[in-house]
Every structure is written in C-alpha cells, then in structure tokens.
Simulated assay, not measured.
Amino acid sequence: MAADRSVARLKSVVFDVGNVLVDWNPRAFFQRHIADPARLDRFLGEVATLEWHTQHDAGRSFADTSAELIALHPDEAEMIRLWGDRFDGQIGDLLPGMAALVADLDSAGVPLYAITNFSHEFWPPFRAREAALLDRFRDILVSGEVKLVKPDPAIYALALDRFGLAPGEALFVDDRADNVEAAERSGFVGHVFRDAPALRDSLQGYGLL
C-alpha cells in the first residue's frame, strides 16, 4: 500500500543526462582517432577506464587525473589529453524522442530536474550547447560540483532537499539499474530507461502526461 500511495503523489520527474537525454559514447569518438581495434580496446579497457573517468564526476580536475594517467601510460599521452580537450566530441545527439518528451512534460507543467554524474569542468560547455533542452529544467545537480556521485545515497538526499521534494513525489529516470535502485531506497519512484516510447508509456500510466 505504501508504494501505491507513493506513486499517487508523483508530481515531478528527475532525469539522468548521459544515455537518457543524450548519447554518451567514448568508443564512437576514439575509434575515429585510434585505427587499431586492439589498441582501442586496450585504451578504453585499461587506460581511460570508466573508473578513471569517474574521478572527474567526483570533482577531481582533469589536469590532475590526466597527469597521473600519462605518468602510468606515457605511450597514450596524446589520447589521454584528447579525452579532456575534446570531451564534447564523446557526447552525441539527443536520444530519439527525448526532446519532445521533455517539452511535453514542461508544457504540462510538470517540474523537471536532473541528477547527473558529470565533471564540473566539462559541464558548462555541454550545458551551453544543450541550452534549448536544459533551460526547461528548474535545477540540475551536477556530481562534480557537489563532489558526490551516483549511486551514493547522499546525492539523492541532497537532491530531494535542494529540489524541495518529499519522498514519493518524484520519478527518477536513469539508464543504470544500480542508480535507480539507490534512488528508490532514498525515496524516489524509479524507472530504468530503455527508450523514449517506454518512458512515455510509464509517464502516462503515472498520470504525468
């Protein structure tokens, strides 16, 4: 019964950004710069790993993390520097149907927010690039700015407080199940993102569209 009451109270939507609103694909970018597939696999699997990049999401500067990584992998110094110099190139287009979905929610008067794992250094140029979409959001919590990274429960608690939301009042949308599960434990109603049509169906089922 508690879950039913929670769903009935939904009034806002909190989005993830990468791979929910926009395509983030480091491999697609670096395969244009590293012709050898084996080297590409090594670079992304052993050098510029997701674990290494998460340091940026947690608030560390690219200057520091890249210097450390270049010291370990001097043969990949050029590609490591390219990660920071051209991070915007890793971010592709808006995912199909998402601009229209966000616009429809905004037009319906649904308060929109976001929690994103994103470097505080890489965020401003991306925010400017996607201003037409992101201006519809009332607030966006950027992990690199607050030095908390999903799925840390603290980032969800901070989001509820900063957005002025009570538990059960927001649907949280993320492509990673672990992030969604952590959000649910923190008081959000969760949706694991697969595509815009499935999300639209869920929003209609919750009465938000």
Rank of each mutant, 00 (worst) to 15 (best):
M1E: 06
M1Y: 01
A2F: 01
A3R: 14
A3V: 03
V7K: 14
V7H: 11
R9T: 06
S12T: 15
D16I: 05
V17S: 05
N19E: 06
V20I: 04
N25R: 13
N25Q: 08
R27T: 06
A28P: 02
F30D: 08
F30M: 07
Q31V: 06
D36I: 04
P37L: 08
P37V: 08
P37E: 08
A38K: 10
R42A: 10
G45I: 06
E46W: 02
E46T: 10
T49E: 09
E51Q: 14
Q55H: 12
D57R: 06
A58I: 03
A58S: 13
G59R: 11
A63K: 04
A63T: 08
D64P: 00
A67V: 02
L69I: 03
L72R: 15
H73R: 10
E76P: 00
A77T: 10
M79R: 12
R81M: 07
L82V: 01
L82F: 02
D85L: 13
F87Y: 15
D88H: 05
D88R: 09
I91E: 09
L95V: 01
P96Q: 08
A99I: 02
A100F: 02
L105V: 10
D106A: 15
D106L: 00
S107H: 08
A108K: 14
P111C: 01
P111E: 01
L112T: 01
L112K: 04
Y113T: 01
I115E: 08
T116K: 07
N117K: 10
F118T: 12
S119T: 12
E121G: 06
R127K: 11
R127E: 15
R129P: 00
R129C: 07
L133E: 05
L134E: 05
D135S: 14
R136N: 09
F137G: 09
F137P: 10
F137A: 10
R138M: 04
I140R: 07
I140A: 05
L141V: 05
V142W: 05
S143D: 02
S143V: 02
G144Q: 04
V146M: 03
K147P: 00
L148E: 04
L148R: 14
V149M: 03
K150H: 04
P151W: 02
P153D: 01
A154D: 07
A157R: 14
A159Y: 06
A159Q: 07
D161E: 14
D161T: 10
D161F: 00
D161Y: 00
R162K: 12
F163G: 07
A170Q: 12
L171F: 03
R176T: 13
R176C: 01
D178A: 10
R185G: 15
F188H: 13
D195I: 00
D195E: 14
A196V: 01
A196N: 03
A196E: 02
D201S: 14
Q204T: 15
Q204Y: 04
L209Q: 13
L209Y: 14
L209F: 15
